[in-house]
Design a protein around this nucleic acid. Structure first.
Length: 506
DNA sequence: GGACGGTGAAACTTCAGGTTGCCTC
DNA sequence: GAAGTTTCACCGTCC
């Protein structure tokens, strides 16, 4: 039997719990599944919570439910929040004995266990193939062992393949020093955003004060080479000016030396620049969206807009095109070429792969707004439920930003198109259901049910008979919906009366 | 004799995470 | 680079 399995079983025999860190999601899931087949615990009540988290249980949901009912779980970013909550809570309560996870659980949430088992300290990294993970990360994982309130100590176990690897692990991790912490400010998107926001909020009024401000940051402290740093900021500033988010006026004040002339020119955010900053958008993305807006016309549609958001930095990491999907994506690219709002890079361009990924991401969004469910998206595009939620949220935010920029640019057509698309993205519905979604408590499922029963707009809701509506939506919702269209029907359903009685009682 | 099913090795794929953005009825 | 997954040839069994 696998050493990991042995360790897991042994932990449970001691009536203790363990976290097992795996280097990939597939590995976490497989390990959990294997261990779950070796245990005899039974918590049938977890099954329902796990399966009901998504509108339709996906393969992943089913797999998790099979594991967790035996007290073993897997945990990674592809899970829905509800599922992650359940796993974390029940691990704390002691019912879930083993969690096989990716580094999700290493940082953030505090979930101590008696034993931490690290399957491998190597992980795939694009350039170098398999590579050692940072010492800092090892410490994060190992540090999950030993809960101060229950245990006097904890165990962190890593598995080595052979003696040589054992020695290397000991040297590198057990005796190793954690890496230096580096400022994230130096990343261009962050820098662009900060420069604009400093100018927009008036904290910084000219180049000189901007440089003074940055000189005090941790970034400058680490970077040391102020000349190079100023060069980067000059570049940022002229970019912001070129994109018309910032305007640079003539010199300000009389008592400046000739040398400082340029540096004292007042920098101000333009109207659109201010909005970009308020939206907390990366100026590069804002510029990109503005360019796309100007390309938008009556021949473009929701697909165009979905692709626009799919092709941003914020949407990354994108859904990856798999080997078998390559032809399909190519066909799609040719088919909908006319709808795109920006030029397709050349097939030899480095960016081309990402561009294909953006097309795949668009296809997923398109499926979603055409009422395909989580299970379909996972089977067709390989997006897991947890990622679906994250992507939809990002798309909504970017579309909101597009709407706002559209307003400033006085593009009513764009604003109108984006507004309805946002509702469709949020709810995952076709356009025909939009009218019904105006009702409270009506989402994609109920709206679809109404529509297929011939109730297609608010007028139909008014015309509809309460009993029929009740059959479609349930009595309480039906009454509520009727009320929303201005018909306050007095008939009180039995359940409500009971509720009221019990309220009076207590 | 042919359909089906189980087995295992070779061939092929793919590979963690998630800041905090906005507005609102 | 390695684990996980899919594919495919092979063999035995059953009808």
């Amino acid at each position: 039997m696998d050493i990991i399995h042995t360790l897991a079983l042994e932990t449970m025999q001691k009536n203790k719990q363990a976290l097992i860190f795996a280097p990939s999601r597939a590995s976490a899931e497989k390990t959990a599944e294997e261990i779950s087949k070796l245990t005899h615990m039974n918590y049938p009540e977890f099954e329902e919570t796990v399966l009901k988290a998504a509108s339709t249980p996906t393969k992943q949901c089913k797999r998790l439910s099979q594991c967790i009912k035996k007290g073993i779980a897997f945990h990674h970013a592809g899970l829905l929040q509800k599922q992650k909550d359940l796993i974390e809570d029940e691990f704390k309560s002691g019912k879930v004995k083993i969690i096989c996870c990716t580094p999700t659980l290493a940082a953030g949430m505090s979930l101590p266990a008696f034993r931490v088992i690290i399957k491998s300290l190597k992980r795939y990294s694009g350039k170098w193939g398999m590579d050692w993970i940072p010492v800092l990360e090892y410490m994060q994982m190992a540090g999950r062992a030993g809960r101060p309130e229950y245990e006097a100590f904890g165990e962190a176990i890593t598995v080595a393949k052979n003696d040589a690897e054992r020695d290397e692990i000991y040297e590198r991790y057990v005796c190793g020093e954690p890496e230096e912490i580096y400022s994230k400010l130096a990343v261009e998107p962050v820098l662009r955003t900060y420069v604009l926001s400093l100018i927009s909020s008036g904290i910084v009024r000219n180049e000189k004060s901007m440089k003074e401000f940055f000189a005090k940051t941790f970034w400058a402290h680490q970077f040391k080479d102020m000349a190079k740093l100023e060069g980067i900021m000059d570049k940022m500033l002229s970019l912001l000016e070129e994109w018309k988010f910032v305007s640079i006026d003539g010199s300000e004040g009389d008592f400046v030396s000739a040398n400082d002339m340029n540096k004292s020119r007042t920098t101000r955010a333009t109207r659109i620049g201010r909005r970009v900053s308020e939206l907390y958008l990366d100026p590069l993305t804002a510029k990109y969206i503005i360019d796309c807006i100007s390309e938008f016309n009556e021949n473009k549609n929701t697909y165009s807009l979905l692709h626009m958001v799919s092709n941003t930095l914020e949407m990354r990491p994108l859904l990856r095109v798999k080997v078998k999907e390559h032809d399909m994506i190519q066909d799609e690219l040719v088919k909908n070429y006319e709808l795109l709002l920006q030029e397709e890079p050349s097939a030899f361009d480095l960016e081309y792969g990402e561009f294909c990924n953006s097309i795949k991401t668009t296809l997923f969004f398109d499926a979603w707004i055409n009422e395909k469910d989580e299970d379909y998206c996972m089977e067709t595009y390989g997006v897991r439920p947890g990622e679906i939620r994250m992507k939809l949220e990002t798309a909504d935010w970017l579309l909101y930003a597009t709407e706002e920029l559209g307003k400033i640019l006085e593009r009513k057509d764009v604003v109108k198109a984006v507004r309805s698309l946002r509702i469709r993205v949020k709810n995952g519905v076709k356009e025909e259901l939009l009218l019904l979604l105006k009702l409270k408590n009506i989402g994609r499922v109920r709206a679809r049910r109404m529509y297929s029963n011939g109730i297609k707009d608010l007028g139909d809701v008014k015309k509809a008979d309460v009993t029929t509506l009740g059959q479609i939506l349930g009595k309480n919702i039906a009454l509520d919906v009727k009320k929303q269209v201005g018909e306050d029907i007095k008939e009180v359903p039995k359940r409500t009366r009971k509720g009221q009685l019990s309220i009076q009682k207590y």
